[in-house]
Design a protein around this nucleic acid. Structure first.
Lengths: 214, 214
DNA sequence: TAGATTGTTAATCGATTAACAATC
DNA sequence: TAGATTGTTAATCGATTAACAATC
């Protein structure tokens, strides 16, 4: 049904889809019923043709001469991204970053449900983290047999990341958001996205104009 | 001197440069003196020709038949990214995410020096956050007149982001790492990178294979 | 109908990768 | 010298954008 074209949707398209969705939610709350691709460009900075092309991978969404129905488009994008239903997520690594991510307010709104936190540190296991209790990473597979989360957030130090990833794969996780600055070796059936805070800062740093040499 | 070719370096090249740097630091600590582009590919997953091409934007770095000197390449990449010197960074938004970022251990190692934290919440201003004290965002311009930070991390709610960005620009910041899911309108001289946790999760979610419909 | 805006094709642009002469 | 590996050119691949016929 979706993506009738070929099968391969560019990743940048998927990223933009998430952006469109965010703006559509705002528009709905402003009781705006219809939007044109030109207006999307004004709001998101993404080229109008790009927007229409992105949608074209998945079907037809608008009416020529009219535009797109905000609520309809919103729900169809949510469906494409599979966030029109609850997605269970587990977190590995209960350090600063992990704790911050678990408290991220947008999570629930987007129906990502953080169902368990794991760590390998004896001093953390058993402690509460928000409304969850930190579990021993050794029990990950067992715990996920019932939880059946398919998405994991990996927020452990680089040295522990590969072992943790192996455990996640073993536990049936098929999508990993990796915050460790290391190449994870996983089976091809497992999808990994890497997020690197330092990489982002380095790119910013490069763009500083006049280099203050000291 | 650097980037003698044309002037425009692709952003993906800059991102990979940061990745290479990370691995080079590891290699140095393992007392490995020389590395070939083929070995870089094995370690980072980045194509060897890509690696050589990336470097070619900035000059010549290796010896044919030999490879690259780890320490030399490391310091030259650090110089290109301007992280061979201290970079002062200010944080706006002392919520969960901001607090986590400030505690990120790799920051100091990469010579990013977080010199001040600002927030607009009366309940937070004056409180300590790690070794810093949270300051009133109203004093940002004044404070940065002496700090002279050019890089800022923006970790406030979407509704507050544009105003905060305006204040940052006004205070002389020229590079912003934006965690708010909103298009910031800034002068062309200001470089913005957007990081969206939810966007990352949405792309992961899309790639889940058999959609568990309920 | 006239005006607006879509969906899609074709053109452009840019990034990745393969190939190889140059060189250590 | 022979073998290895670079730097760079050329070929490929993929993504963005402009243009426009189709359509509301």
């Amino acid at each position: 049904m979706y993506n009738s074209h070929n099968g391969k949707v560019p990743v940048p398209t998927l990223e933009r889809l998430a952006t469109y969705l965010r703006y559509l939610i705002d528009l709905e709350q402003s009781h705006i019923e219809t939007i044109s691709s030109a207006e999307v460009e004004r709001q998101t900075g993404i080229n109008a043709a790009q927007f229409r092309k992105d949608l074209s991978y998945f079907g037809e969404f608008g009416k020529p001469g009219v535009g797109y129905n905000v609520i309809d488009l919103q729900s169809r994008i949510a469906h494409i991204l599979k966030i029109d239903r609850e997605q269970r997520v587990i977190l590995v690594g209960a350090g600063n970053l992990g704790s911050a991510l678990i408290g991220y307010p947008g999570l629930k709104e987007h129906r990502f449900n953080l169902v368990a936190v794991f760590d390998n540190s004896a001093s953390k296991i058993g402690r509460p983290l928000w409304e969850l209790q930190i579990q021993d990473i050794a029990t990950l597979k067992e715990a996920n047999a019932t939880l059946e989360a398919r998405i994991a957030i990996l927020a452990v130090p680089a040295t522990a990341a590969q072992k943790a990833a192996d455990a996640l794969v073993e536990a049936g996780v098929t999508a990993i958001l990796n915050f460790a600055p290391i190449l994870l070796r996983v089976p091809p059936s497992v999808y990994v996205r890497n997020v690197s805070f330092l990489q982002e800062l380095a790119v910013l740093s490069y763009h500083l104009s006049a280099a203050p040499e000291n």
